[in-house]
Design a protein around this nucleic acid. Structure first.
Length: 860
RNA sequence: GGGUGGUUAGCUCAGUUGGUUUAGAGCGUUUGCCCUACAAGCAAAAAGUCACUAGUUCGAAUCUAGUACCACCCA
């Protein structure tokens, strides 16, 4: 078979790995632990190529470390993603025209959804080859995790860090919940500023306010001006009438009002603006809070005839009416930034609301102390960013008005607030602590809010080892902290920073020793891959079309430190690469063992020795790159080793000589080393070939190749350099004779090397000369570094276009002039290092010779 | 408005301490080859004002500043 059949093999191979428990990890004091955590994907849908980027790089590290003898424990998991999942499910229900669903039923639907997608995600992770310990799988709504989250909440609550407070929050009218500041995107949009008249009680005077939101007049509590504003001094403490609704409100003064924006005079709606709310707090005695919205963004009872009309529609109605009644005097177009919800892409409303908050000060303090110990890769910029982020952190709104998520473990009984892990515990506390004996169970009420998703994922590094339910358990002490966390920089704030804060506070330890940030895969328009845009291909589609190894190569073949794009070309070139790996196996298998002469044996032996040197060189380079965590460069190097060195050179040479049993064994050893190096990057095909080669054990548990001690034989090195050069300039079927300067003859004096030269580069004759004059003018001069040699080949040179040669001569003349000027420059000669000057002189000589050759070509 | 990153061949990008780079690779294009691993292959060719301007330096794709465009993050 000429192409590799991944569909048949990949599943089978994964089964072999699982059956042999290769990825299973338990405490082994003789081995160094290597703890990895899979950044849990959301269960909102299946995985896309963006996830695969992180997981592939993680897998490479897991496999290399395993091969290097570490006890690798890679814990996989998924995130229940409370808000994202809930929105998704509600949307699906809405499309099916299912409304008014009960709490219990909805929760059940969510649970079934999570079961379905947990299974899909697990399957996809396995299909791309992730070597996770599946026995340790973590779902953020799993039993162990739910317990841990509750425990953490209660502990923080008891310490007084969690509190309830009425504040202005971001309200997503579609999802009907609060969302955090981080879940908001500001979009540049044109907006209109409306200038509206507010008359005083006697209707003789009026004041003009400018607002972008005329529909909020129902919530107007006051008009506010800056106390230093001369224009409005006479108005202060007077009263005005709100247009249309006729409510009387006071005019107050506050320094928070900017005199230069609009008319310098604003209306105050404290329930729906953070700034207004701040002003309200200072004037509590003078004004009231009026909430005008329902949870879905329609107007409430207070608006009377306008109730249940959406706010955006109402705006149009109100503007019309204001215009008709003569209140609206001016409309101004204005560019502004409008807040949209990341979750539902709807305009965010500000709303006053009672929410749970977590005081972050102690977390910030503890994290800043320990963050220095974390090694941040690949760029230092993220470290600066982390500090910056920590410092601007406000108290965290941790409650969400959703169904799907961790219910806040707080129970209310009459006026008592009881933090408890379960109803049973709450009753016990009531009985024991508060000594209430006749408890009316139906009057115990649980808090209706759920916790922000990140409140459950920030404890994951600890809770995945059950370190919260059983602190200092054996597993936890052995594995913690994570050795290397790999994740996209986009969740730096949401997740990474919070894990650092939690671990620092809770156990006074860093959660991970090292963090490696990757870029993000984008589409051709440089947009993030997202489910709502649908700008990516399904993973199953790609797996079926190309297979896991091709997918991995397509990802690895980009510098993933930055954001990048994968186009169809990448998949095709990666497929070609995998195919070549497969065909290298077929070729190796077909090598015939023959009985051969001593000279033939020596020839094959030299080729093998030469390649072992190359292999060592590459292995050193790859080890160094891996140590520096330069994963992209390591892959590029490995690809080059396989394609350019192993296939194009080594295997091509092998074709030209006969091989005996010993030779084949040595070739197989080389091939096995190549496969081992390739294995972490393309695990499936390498394992398949490994099995086909009749190895007793699997490549997954083989050891990483060591650098062999091979004598650096200059003679071999020089011979192959020359062979490769001749191959480069020689076209097939051209009769080439080569003349080598006698001074260098000594290098090839041994028959065996001469023989190899003939054999591998297909030269007809090799002559040695001592002086240039001795050579027939028919021969054309080529220069190869330190060797002077001539090649006889009329056809080759006749083909060369004279114009092109002229151009080349021009180019080299210009270049030569540069070098000559450089060498004339005293400053250069004084300042530049000796070797650089020597190099320039050498360059000059080389180019002069080249020009001479080209000139000869033309005039001959 | 503030910050970060980018601009190198038709496309996607490398270029790791300024000098072993006379700017490279893959894909695409053109040419020649089905020679018993691979046509998803091999061999070769064409293709570039390194965005622009100034500066530092003996020497700049590389360092500094500014400009333009693109993208992302934050408010």
């Amino acid at each position: 078979m000429k192409t590799y059949n991944f569909n048949k093999n990949d599943n089978l191979i994964y089964k072999i790995w699982i059956l042999n428990k290769y990825f299973y990890s338990n405490i082994n004091k003789n081995k160094k632990p290597y703890y990895l955590l899979l950044p849990p994907p959301n269960i909102t849908g299946d995985l896309h190529i963006g996830h695969i980027l992180n997981y592939t790089i993680l897998d490479i590290y897991a496999r290399i470390k395993r091969m290097k003898g570490y006890n690798v424990c890679w814990i996989p998991g998924t995130d229940h993603a409370s808000i994202a999942t809930e929105i998704k499910i509600r949307q699906i229900l809405k499309n099916k025209n299912i409304n008014n669903i009960s709490y219990k039923k909805f929760k059940l639907i969510c649970l079934n959804w999570s079961k379905k997608y947990n299974a899909i995600i697990k399957d996809q992770l396995k299909k791309i080859g992730c070597s996770c310990d599946w026995g340790k799988f973590q779902f953020t709504m799993g039993n162990n995790h739910v317990k841990s989250v509750k425990k953490v909440f209660i502990k923080l609550y008891k310490k007084g860090l969690i509190y309830k407070s009425k504040r202005i929050v971001n309200w997503d009218v579609k999802a009907r919940t609060t969302i955090s500041d981080e879940e908001i995107t500001y979009k540049k949009k044109y907006n209109y500023l409306y200038y509206i008249k507010y008359f005083t009680l006697d209707k003789k005077e009026y004041i003009i306010i400018a607002t972008t939101r005329p529909e909020t007049i129902f919530g107007d509590s006051a008009i506010c001006v800056n106390p230093n504003d001369i224009r409005y001094k006479s108005f202060i403490n007077k009263k005005v009438i709100v247009p249309i609704i006729g409510r009387v409100i006071p005019i107050i003064k506050d320094k928070l009002v900017n005199m230069n924006i609009g008319t310098g005079c604003i209306k105050i709606t404290p329930a729906h603006s953070e700034k207004d709310f701040n002003i309200y707090k200072k004037h509590k005695n003078e004004i009231k809070i009026i909430n005008i919205f329902n949870d879905d963004g329609t107007l409430n009872k207070i608006s009377n005839i306008y109730k249940n009309i959406d706010r955006l529609l109402l705006r149009k109605i109100i503007i019309k009416k204001l215009k008709k009644l003569g209140y609206l005097i001016k409309v101004k177009k204005k560019k502004s930034y409008i807040a949209y919800s990341d979750r539902t892409n709807t305009i965010i409303e500000k709303k006053i609301s009672l929410q749970w908050y977590l005081n972050m000060e102690i977390f910030k303090f503890k994290a800043l102390k320990l963050i220095k110990r974390i090694n941040i890769l690949p760029k230092k910029k993220y470290k600066i960013l982390l500090y910056k982020w920590i410092n601007i952190l406000k108290d965290w709104n941790i409650s969400r008005q959703l169904v799907w998520g961790h219910r806040i473990p707080i129970y209310y009984y009459k006026k008592l607030i009881i933090p408890a892990i379960s109803l049973k515990k709450a009753i016990k506390i009531l009985k024991v602590k508060f000594k209430i004996l006749n408890i009316n169970k139906s009057k115990i009420k649980k808090d209706k809010n759920v916790l922000d998703t990140w409140f459950s994922s920030w404890i994951l590094p600890i809770s995945a080892l059950n370190g919260i339910n059983k602190n200092n358990n054996k597993n936890f002490n052995y594995y913690y902290p994570i050795n290397l966390l790999i994740t996209g920089y986009d969740i730096l704030f949401f997740w990474v920073l919070r894990m650092i804060m939690f671990s620092s506070y809770y156990i006074n330890k860093i959660p991970f020793k090292e963090i490696y940030f990757t870029g993000i895969i984008r589409d051709k328009n440089k947009k993030k891959l997202s489910k709502s845009l649908g700008n990516y291909k399904n993973i199953y589609y790609l797996l079926n079309k190309y297979g896991a190894d091709v997918l991995r190569v397509s990802i690895l073949d980009n510098n993933h430190i930055y954001d990048f794009v994968i186009d169809e070309n990448k998949y095709i070139s990666s497929r070609n690469f995998i195919n070549k790996v497969w065909n290298s196996y077929i070729f190796i298998k077909k090598i015939n063992k023959k009985k051969i002469t001593n000279i033939e044996y020596k020839k094959s032996f030299i080729i093998i020795k030469w390649f072992n040197n190359i292999l060592n060189f590459y292995l050193k380079k790859i080890n160094l790159l891996l140590k520096k965590k330069e994963i992209y460069y390591s892959f590029i190097t490995i690809k080059k080793l396989f394609k350019k060195e192993f296939c194009s050179k080594f295997l091509e040479f092998i074709k030209n000589v006969n091989i005996n049993i010993i030779g084949k064994k040595k070739i197989l050893n080389i091939y096995k080393i190549i496969l081992k190096i390739l294995h972490p990057y393309i695990p499936y095909i390498t394992e398949y070939i490994w099995i086909k080669l009749n190895n007793k054990s699997n490549i997954t548990i083989s050891t990483w190749p060591k650098i062999n001690k091979v004598n650096n034989n200059k003679k071999i090195y020089d011979t192959f350099k020359l062979i490769l050069f001749i191959k480069k300039i020689k076209l097939k079927n051209n009769n080439i004779s080569i003349y080598i300067n006698k001074n260098y003859k000594i290098k090839f004096i041994k028959y065996i090397y001469i023989n190899l030269l003939y054999n591998l580069s297909n030269i007809k004759y090799i002559y040695f000369f001592s002086k240039l004059n001795n050579i027939n003018k028919e021969y054309k001069l080529f220069i190869y570094k330190e060797y002077n040699f001539y090649i006889f080949n009329k056809d080759l040179l006749d083909k060369i276009d004279k114009n092109k040669i002229n151009n080349k001569i021009k180019f080299y003349n210009k270049y030569l002039l540069n070098i000559k000027n450089k060498l004339k420059n005293k400053k250069f000669l004084d300042n530049a290092p000796k070797n650089i000057i020597e190099l320039e002189i050498k360059k000059k000589k080389d180019i002069e010779k080249k020009i001479l050759i080209y000139k000869k070509k033309i005039f001959n």
